[in-house]
Simulated scan of single mutants.
Amino acid sequence: MSIEKQPTGSVERVEIQSRFLQQSREVHIYLPHNYSPLYKYPVLYFNDGSDYESMGRMISLLNHRFADRHARRFLVVFVPVDKSVRRDEYHPEGSKHSAYVRFFADELIPLIEERYAAFPMGPARGIVGSSLGAVAALHTLLTYPRKFHYLALQSGAFHESSFQQVEAKGRELATVPIYQVVGLQEDRFQSASGKVIDLLALNRKMRDLLQSGGVDVEYGEYDHDHTWGFWQEDLPRLLDHFARHTSF
């Protein structure tokens, strides 16, 4: 008796010559096993793309998910980052942050929608990030509110400038479904500089600020620390949320 193999998607690697970042960047595009250029798909973009692929085990998760023929299909774009410049690109006050956001919105998205069968509309685009990658995702959406419809924040390492921007532009997020999680053990997170930060309190503050502006936030706190084990475990919930809130 033969055992039917689980269908597997494919991952394509694409080089982008960025005039904003003044360098070539590689991104990885996951296509479901039954991807067809005859259809149009929503797209979910991930900051820290290589980490989501390896430590988040996203490829296996996506293969398993799309083996169900009833599952809503979408494309996933993993955007790797050089760890040596991660803070410069992701932090809202980083020296390369503005260039990274412009690369993401004005170079990456047009290329994906030119090469693949992606819906070329904001309601079909989402961004995901964890820790400082969540901050970069939030600020990308705040800078280009009409280009995105969905935002997922895992253990966001928010800064004062993030709260200021949400206060100033929060009304533009009113139509954006936001998924947000944090670990209960993240109340004493030690940053790379050695500073101890209460990420749990910062996430609660961000949730309250977003909700006070009329934003639909699905918020969860779990008994976890600031680790990939937590974010990996959370990914099925995140993907379910994205599928439910994508209207295509």
Rank of each mutant, 00 (worst) to 15 (best):
S2D: 09
K5N: 12
K5Y: 10
K5R: 12
Q6W: 09
T8F: 06
S10K: 15
V11C: 05
V14A: 04
V14H: 13
Q17F: 09
S18K: 07
F20D: 06
R25N: 06
E26D: 11
V27F: 10
H28S: 12
H28F: 11
Y30S: 05
L31W: 09
S36Q: 12
L38G: 14
L38W: 14
Y41K: 08
Y41C: 10
Y45M: 05
Y45I: 08
F46D: 01
D48M: 03
S50Y: 07
E53N: 07
E53R: 13
G56V: 02
L62H: 04
N63A: 10
N63M: 10
F78A: 07
P80L: 12
S84Y: 11
R86G: 07
R87T: 07
G94C: 02
A99G: 03
A99V: 04
F103M: 05
A105E: 11
D106E: 15
P110L: 04
P110W: 07
L111Q: 14
I112S: 01
Y116A: 11
A124N: 03
G126I: 04
G126Y: 09
I127H: 03
V128Q: 05
S131D: 09
T140P: 04
L142R: 09
F148E: 11
F148M: 15
Y150P: 02
L151S: 09
A152H: 08
L153K: 10
Q154H: 15
G156Q: 07
E160A: 13
E160S: 14
S162V: 09
V166H: 02
A168W: 12
R171F: 13
L173E: 10
P177G: 05
I178R: 07
Y179Q: 05
Q180F: 07
V181Q: 01
G183C: 05
G183R: 00
L184V: 00
L184K: 05
Q185S: 03
E186V: 03
R188L: 09
R188N: 05
A201G: 00
A201F: 01
K205E: 15
K205F: 04
M206H: 02
D216V: 11
D216H: 12
D216E: 12
H224V: 01
Q232N: 06
D234T: 11
L235C: 05
L238G: 01
H241F: 14
A243R: 11
A243H: 11
R244L: 14
T246G: 12
